[in-house]
Amino acid sequence: MAPLAPRSGDAVFANVERVNAELFTLTYGAIVRQLLTDLEEVEEVNKQLDQMGYNIGIRLIDEFLAKSNVSRCVDFKETADVIAKVGLKMFLGVTASVTNWDVDGTSCSLVLEDNPLVDFVELPDTCQGLYYCNILSGVIRGALEMVSMKTEVTWVRDMLRGDDAYELRLKLLKQVPEEYPYKDDE
């Protein structure tokens, strides 16, 4: 029997090298401000943040698989659980709770218990349409795509926009079958 996937990323997080979250938070803030200045349109900034997240996600999944000791998830429910308890913990030091499953078990919500991206942040009136944390949804989408799952990840609640929590909606669009044999020499 395959070893049980760890239910928490605490041990992994304790063992990886870490940096002060404030450096991370302020650097992210600098990126968002640069994008707002360059792109002007809030919609474009949302897109660019999502793209950056996607780029990160497709790289980050390798480290996740290498260090987390998580084996293949049997279903999307387990996948969501692993993201919430192991993935987020391992990289950002936070966890989320998984709620609001639909009947087919293909979409659910991740409610973040803490969010290191938003310290010191307040959205000015000119940026009301901004999904400040859009990079995070991109990361999850990118990472899942690398393990054969096409997903749609959107923000449904955002405290910077006046909601009472940070809630991401995760929707499994389709499982892409792995192609085999891999064509290594192309």
């Binding site: 090298e17 870490r18 990289f91």
Partner: peptide, 15 residues
Amino acid sequence: QEVSLSAFALLFSEL
């Protein structure tokens, strides 16, 4: 509070 060094490194690389 801390985040993993990789999280920062990946973010910085995107910058």
